[in-house]
Write a protein that binds this DNA or RNA. Structure first.
Lengths: 361, 361
DNA sequence: ATGAAAGCGCTAACAG
DNA sequence: CTGTTAGCGCTTTCAT
């Protein structure tokens, strides 16, 4: 076949493709055109070493000319691998979580994985439904940050049974088969509290969330330790563990605080959005922040720099956490085994001191 | 086969499944067990009308017992449909966009579609890359809100050529084959400006973004019309069209405003985050808001209720927009043709008046 | 270095 | 109402 003929043939096919948008190009089309077998085309396209580099070049070129698109379904069906990883998180709409997503996306894309994202909206039921969808979609691995409400991880059992790697981050669940990626919430909680005390707080209150979630439980432990170390007696009045995502519950907690015979002079709130609501309420009552009450939040959400006074908070490496989680998962999938004991990865966090807790200026 | 035997057989299979986590249950397994053909099993599982309801029940029950999971890839491969819709948006991390996602997710899930989400991060290049991935993943339809930077929609041409429905929302591109879902930005911009004028503003400035994006261009038109109607002369000094997502550019614009010989007394900013930055800067300069300068934003982001004074803004129905977009797309896919002329769908938006623009209290 | 052939699991004519 | 048959597009032995 002379070059000119080939060219014509190619052009004819291109025309076909453009005119008839129904027909997809397959490796058979390429094989026929090149008078080779589909198997070789498949190999060529996948850069298999045992294909003459000349043939390979021709295959790739023609594939490009014809606008060939590999059919993922056929490939997945055959390979029994999807090159997809799932990500289930409480909500997409927060600075922290969207940073995580960006980090995961980056690593996943670079490694040629597709990312399937879904939000549990803090509900255990939706989390379970999402898990099921992910399982049916046969994700190769799953990244999870637990919903606020979740009590057990039965809905993830199918993954564990089937040996699909499951990695928790931030809101984690201890499980021998799963890696956890977290910050040291205990230490962060401790530092926040120490800071408040160093600024002169004598009566402290900690507003926190569901203590089944490690993030809240651990911060509380840090809070307690700091009190203890400073010989400040601890009673259950010091802690308001509420449904921190429900504004009414938070308002109720605030009312409780306002009604306390001896009001606190330092409040550690387990997240920034709640801390902001608290500050607004305090200001409405003409209570000065930090003058009368100092407030510290958690997360370093952008909102913390909008509220006045600017909020002291703990910075949280979302993007990095996403990267680490995805990298870890993909390593697992590629059989790169980390040291067996890598069951928990702890990332750095930092106390960011701003006006809301600065009494000694 | 007696009941008892069947039971044993089932149990044996269940054991198989549990012990050997390698082997997936297929419709063949179910067929064999029930002594019927795989085709019938397939029909039964898909609730095909032509299957005796008794048989159907048995099939479904056994499938459940065996922990059968339909293999999406085989099914997609066969049906040439993925039941997946793609969503490409500028960024996930904003109240508006995450509301949209929630709306889309809801409708998509209810209709049995899987959702593939990816963010362009406002970059044309990433948008194109995402589009390519979506195309290769063979999404049945695509929902898009354009990146800030995007200049043309060549990267979506493959979808159009192939007849894959493409719907734009919010940041749209007029195209005869594509539906657009928007709010009336022109009217909203007009109302904002009228409001400022009604509050006594005489010298107005509009800070906006890339005028290639309909959302900014249309709001500007509304701004202009309101000025004209109130016989306020318009000059190009009244408009600062900058890269509104770049904080340095915004700061520069603010400097420009502060340096104006005659300072404006009303500023309309095209989004809330920028309006907040502006207010912070003004307050730093001891300029009173709204006393000296009134400020209005756009989007009704939660942040608008944190800044002091609370920000007047335009509420934007994100969740609903997501629902409408998804519903429209899915109708298309199901061949439910809307009236041909449904090329643009306009949703309601509302001016929300708060302190930042209230001079006549 | 390449080809032949089988099969991943499912669905859709078609036939009965 | 159910079964037979073929094939979606790709990968992977096993040959050669």
């Amino acid at each position: 076949m002379q070059p000119i003929t080939k060219l014509v043939a190619v052009q004819a096919r291109i025309m076909d493709f453009i005119s008839d948008n129904k027909k997809e190009i397959t490796i058979y089309d390429i094989a026929r055109e090149l008078n080779i077998s589909p198997a070789t085309v498949s190999r060529g396209l996948n850069d298999h070493p045992a294909v003459k580099s000349n043939t390979k070049k021709k295959i790739v070129q023609l594939a490009k000319d014809l606008g060939y698109q590999s059919n993922t379904f056929a490939s997945n069906l055959r390979k029994k691998r999807t090159n997809t990883i799932g990500l289930i998180l409480p909500t997409i709409n927060s600075n922290f979580h969207s940073s995580v997503i960006a980090g995961v996306e980056k690593v996943a894309n670079d490694a040629g994985y597709t990312l399937l994202i879904s939000q549990s909206l803090e509900a255990a039921g939706k989390e379970a439904a999402n898990a099921k969808t992910m399982f049916n979609s046969r994700v190769d691995g799953l990244l999870v940050s637990l919903a606020y409400e979740t009590n057990n991880i039965e809905h993830f059992q199918p993954f564990i049974n089937k040996g699909i790697p499951l990695i928790f981050y931030d809101r984690v669940f201890e499980h021998k088969n799963c890696t956890s990626i977290v910050i040291d919430n205990f230490k962060a909680g401790y530092e926040v509290t120490q800071h408040l005390i160093s600024q002169g707080a004598k009566k402290l209150v900690h507003i926190t969330g569901n203590l089944n979630r490690n993030v809240y439980a651990d911060r509380l432990k840090g809070f307690k330790l700091a009190l203890m170390e400073n010989e400040i007696p601890f009673s259950k009045d010091n802690v308001l563990a509420i449904n921190i995502n429900k504004e009414e519950d938070l308002q109720e907690a605030i009312t409780t605080i306002l009604g306390m015979p001896e009001r606190p002079d330092g409040i550690f709130v387990a997240n920034d959005t709640s801390a902001v609501i608290l500050i607004k309420a305090l200001k409405k009552e003409k209570i000065k922040v930090p003058g009368d009450i100092m407030v510290v939040g958690f997360n370093n959400d952008p909102i913390s720099k909008v509220i006045e006074p600017n909020l002291t908070t703990v910075n949280y490496p979302g993007y990095e956490m996403g990267e680490v989680a995805a990298r870890n998962l993909i390593n697992h999938l590629n059989g790169v085994m980390d040291i067996i004991s890598t069951n928990t990865i702890i990332l750095r966090s930092d106390l960011i001191i701003r006006e809301s807790s600065l009494r000694n200026l």
